[in-house]
Simulated assay, not measured.
Amino acid sequence: MRNAARSSLDAAWQALKLRLGACLLPAQCALCGMGCAEVLCPPCRAQYLGQLRPRCRLCANPLDDAAKLCGRCLRQRPAYDATITAFDYAAPVDQLLLQLKFGARLALAPLLAQLLYVAIQQQSDWERPQLLCPVPLGPARLAERGFNQALEIARPLARLLQLPLQPRLALRLRETRAQSGVAPQERQANLAHAFAIAPDYVALLQGCHVGIVDDVMSSGHTVNALAAACKGAGAGKVSILAVARTPPR
């Protein structure tokens, strides 16, 4: 019990130091480094963000035409029912997520939430979830990093959308290797039985439309595994709200 308490205190202290560091950062654009009053300067925002492109309505992969579904989703429908993303995970805007996740620039989380909110507002056929759930981290990774980047994005996004946030709804049952370090053919197996719904929230999920929030959606196996866990516990619909989408290679 002492070790667990000490680990929890260490994680809390680490998170506090990261938050203080983020607040003390100089006012400069996160992309070009020029001085500005906001986290992202207007020229960078106009040049790199806010440009709509055709995407698969299920997985948000870019499409070359006006087709609503990509070939992959037509062949095998995922467990989730829709995906919205703010931008492609590519240079230079990928630095916004890298700085948040690995540089602990938590001041970027509200910006990323706002960009995702704008993308959501641009979807005329978007169906509003009843609650938001961030993709959970395992205890070891949470203690190591000091924060969950998906939760940091989900908090301001929930306020913008005026939706309840349920950060304890989903449980990560076991530590998994980072998907970026796993061979593509092994990624689905890496996440097998990785998520479950907390027993206290099962009643809340019955017939519910859940919005799963994540920072980056790559192969889609992570959000698919969590969506399957939600539906297995009784959710009626699951939408993915991912800040960035890695284009297929």
Score class of each variant (00 low, 15 high):
Q28N: 05
L97C: 14
A154E: 13
L204M: 11
G103D: 04
Q28R: 15
G146N: 08
Q188V: 10
G138C: 06
G232V: 08
L58M: 02
A225Y: 09
P136R: 09
L115G: 13
R249M: 09
R45H: 10
C23R: 15
Q14G: 15
P78R: 03
G103H: 09
L131Y: 00
A109C: 06
K68E: 08
L191E: 02
L18S: 02
A170N: 01
M217L: 13
C23W: 15
A60P: 09
C32Q: 11
V238E: 00
R57A: 12
A244V: 03
R19H: 12
G181E: 08
L111P: 11
A90C: 08
R2D: 13
L112K: 14
R174F: 06
G71E: 09
A170R: 00
Q99C: 08
A4E: 14
R57N: 09
V93N: 08
V202C: 06
Y201Q: 13
L69D: 13
A140P: 05
L98F: 07
A67D: 14
H221A: 12
A178G: 12
G50I: 09
I240Q: 04
E144D: 00
P156A: 05
A183D: 10
C23T: 13
P62M: 08
C70T: 08
L74W: 06
A91V: 12
D215F: 00
E38D: 13
G146M: 05
C73M: 02
L241K: 04
Q122M: 09
S124V: 15
D81V: 01
A66E: 15
R177Y: 01
A196H: 05
P134M: 01
V182C: 06
N224G: 07
G33W: 04
V210S: 03
Q206G: 11
